[in-house]
């Protein structure tokens, strides 16, 4: 009698444990469930560009994940693509950290875009080990809204990218990783991979990979009209 009871209890416990494990797996952001599609819609961080938001599964930049931006050339509007989201974060008292930016972030332009400069931190770590350490610590800390990092030196190993992705998930931070477009061919654990280029006038985005969504779309974003307005010749 007691044996049978035990067996029954064991079975129940087993079932509970299994259910728990299953729900743990289902909670992962990279598992897509058709049934939950409604809940997931407003998950991302609004990028400030409605056209881009419509393309992304979370209707914005993926939260707690790495977004890779494959850029070869600066000046095509790669930073202004992120500025609305960054400005929003700094206004919500979250830190934005820049690691190894290629040039000096120009304070008047950032302030004009609405970024609160006192929440901006710029790091120039020496050596790749220090750089990876700083990136991981920043992402994990939980106080950092976004981390922008520029790849300097050799491409990071696959396991390092994976660690950064995990750190971003732990700290619920957005990691924007700028890489040369030559690394598009190599696989990456990033949740979103975007190639940025210019067609001469506009910024062209190409989706290479998107977790839980479709990829391959192209999007043309116009530059700020204040910049591209052509003055009439004086004579």
């Amino acid at each position: 009698m007691s044996n049978a009871e035990n067996l029954f209890q064991n079975k129940q416990l087993d079932q509970q444990a299994r259910q728990q494990r299953l729900s743990q797996v289902l909670r992962r952001p990279d598992i897509w469930q058709a049934a939950n599609e409604q809940q997931r819609t407003r998950h991302g961080i609004a990028s400030g560009y409605p056209g881009l938001d419509a393309l992304l599964t979370g209707h914005g930049w993926p939260r707690g994940a790495t977004t890779e931006l494959l850029v070869d050339q600066s000046g095509i509007g790669e930073l202004s693509l992120l500025l609305p989201a960054l400005a929003d974060m700094t206004q919500r008292e979250q830190m934005v950290v820049l690691i190894n930016p290629p040039f000096i972030p120009y304070a008047p332009a950032l302030a004009a875009a609405g970024v609160r400069l006192e929440k901006l931190l710029i790091l120039h770590p020496r050596g790749q080990r220090d750089q990876l350490w700083a990136m991981e610590q920043t992402l994990q800390s939980g106080c950092c809204g976004a981390l922008l990092s520029w790849q300097a030196g050799p491409p990071p190993a696959d396991k390092d990218l994976r660690r950064l992705q995990v750190a971003a998930r732990d700290g619920n931070a957005v990691h924007f990783h700028f890489r040369p477009s030559s690394s598009a061919a190599s696989p990456s654990p990033a949740a979103l991979r975007l190639q940025l280029a210019s067609d001469g006038e506009q910024l062209v985005l190409q989706l290479h990979k998107q977790l839980g969504g479709s990829a391959g779309q192209r999007l043309h974003l116009a530059r700020n009209s204040d910049l591209t307005r052509r003055d009439r010749p004086l004579h």
């Binding site: 972030p105 304070a107 400069l117 710029i122 120039h124 020496r126």
Partner: peptide, 9 residues
């Protein structure tokens, strides 16, 4: 020396 911020002047 590896850390900095920016302000307006």
């Amino acid at each position: 020396e590896a850390m900095s911020g920016v302000t307006l002047r």
